[in-house]
Simulated assay, not measured.
Amino acid sequence: MTYRILLVCGSLRAGSTNEAALRTVADVAPEDVETVFYEGLGDLPHFNPDDDHDPLHPAVAALRTAIGESDAVLICTPEYAGAMPGSFKNLLDWTIGGGEIYEKPVAYINVSGPAAPTGGADAHDSLRKVLGYASVDLVEAACVRIPVTRKELSEDGLFHAPSQRAQFTAVLTTLTTHLQPAP
């Protein structure tokens, strides 16, 4: 069986280490895992409940379709001003009304560098809170911190340190194991 994992980056920054981490996840994915990178964060309109009806804005419809077509969602987001970035919170707000993320297995990776004293804990606390409102199936064992630095990023935009790649692989393994039916 092939599992489809939607990779969602919470950063709009070009060359973000969060995006590089998810691109590395895609690079280490085994043959039975199809990764799909969501690239529409910057295209989403500001959330307004009055606009949460058909016909949806095309970017919102594309987001909801991508979530609905996936078996699980893997997030990597930075922390800004003590929480997740506003643009990423906006994305999450758009997921509530559609229900596609309801009970969907979700995990997140934190790549805050070793010098970050809290490791982005505030971002992930706010992320956890919003995901609770979305009633996702949070796969705690796949929610990990894999500290990286920009200087560890290779010219191809990926992380190649064996220890980091093993950790990214372990996240996918944990997430796909969670997706497998109980024996």
Results as ranks from 00 to 15, higher is better:
106 V>F: 00
29 A>I: 05
2 T>Q: 09
69 E>K: 12
139 V>T: 10
44 L>A: 08
43 D>P: 03
3 Y>F: 14
130 V>P: 00
105 P>K: 05
5 I>E: 03
77 T>R: 00
101 I>F: 08
153 L>Y: 02
59 A>N: 09
105 P>N: 04
102 Y>P: 00
138 L>C: 07
45 P>M: 11
57 H>S: 06
146 I>N: 12
60 V>C: 11
64 R>D: 13
165 R>H: 09
160 H>I: 05
5 I>F: 04
72 A>L: 10
52 D>M: 04
47 F>R: 01
31 E>K: 05
47 F>S: 05
38 Y>A: 10
151 K>P: 06
113 G>I: 09
104 K>I: 12
98 G>E: 11
123 A>I: 00
49 P>Y: 10
74 L>R: 02
86 G>V: 01
134 A>L: 15
132 G>P: 12
137 D>P: 04
50 D>N: 12
160 H>N: 04
165 R>P: 02
167 Q>T: 05
21 A>G: 06
102 Y>T: 13
56 L>D: 12
158 L>I: 02
56 L>S: 11
2 T>N: 13
29 A>E: 02
38 Y>L: 03
124 H>Q: 15
35 T>H: 05
180 Q>E: 15
95 T>K: 08
58 P>R: 09
147 P>K: 07
121 A>M: 15
51 D>Q: 12
93 D>S: 06
154 S>M: 07
63 L>M: 08
52 D>C: 03
100 E>N: 09
107 A>L: 14
10 G>F: 06
39 E>R: 15
155 E>A: 15
17 T>R: 07
3 Y>D: 11
24 T>W: 03
6 L>A: 12
75 I>Q: 00
144 V>F: 09
39 E>D: 15
2 T>G: 03
50 D>Q: 09
22 L>H: 01
123 A>W: 00
70 S>M: 10
80 Y>S: 04
138 L>A: 08
150 R>T: 10
84 M>R: 01
131 L>G: 04
15 G>M: 01
45 P>F: 09
134 A>K: 13
100 E>D: 14
7 L>K: 01
136 V>M: 07
149 T>W: 05
29 A>T: 04
15 G>H: 01
34 E>D: 08
127 L>A: 06
180 Q>H: 15
114 P>I: 11
121 A>G: 12
42 G>I: 05
107 A>W: 02
125 D>F: 14
135 S>L: 13
168 F>A: 07
100 E>K: 10
131 L>E: 03
119 G>M: 10
24 T>K: 02
169 T>H: 14
152 E>G: 13
82 G>R: 01
37 F>T: 05
2 T>V: 02
65 T>N: 13
113 G>W: 13
97 G>A: 15
42 G>S: 10
123 A>R: 11
28 V>D: 06
12 L>Y: 10
16 S>R: 07
179 L>W: 06
7 L>N: 00
102 Y>M: 13
172 L>A: 11
23 R>H: 07
143 C>N: 07
133 Y>C: 13
46 H>W: 05
75 I>A: 07
41 L>G: 06
145 R>M: 01
29 A>L: 02
24 T>H: 02
161 A>F: 08
8 V>R: 01
24 T>F: 12
33 V>D: 05
53 H>I: 13
135 S>R: 15
25 V>H: 03
107 A>G: 03
3 Y>P: 02
157 G>M: 06
80 Y>W: 08
148 V>L: 13
150 R>V: 12
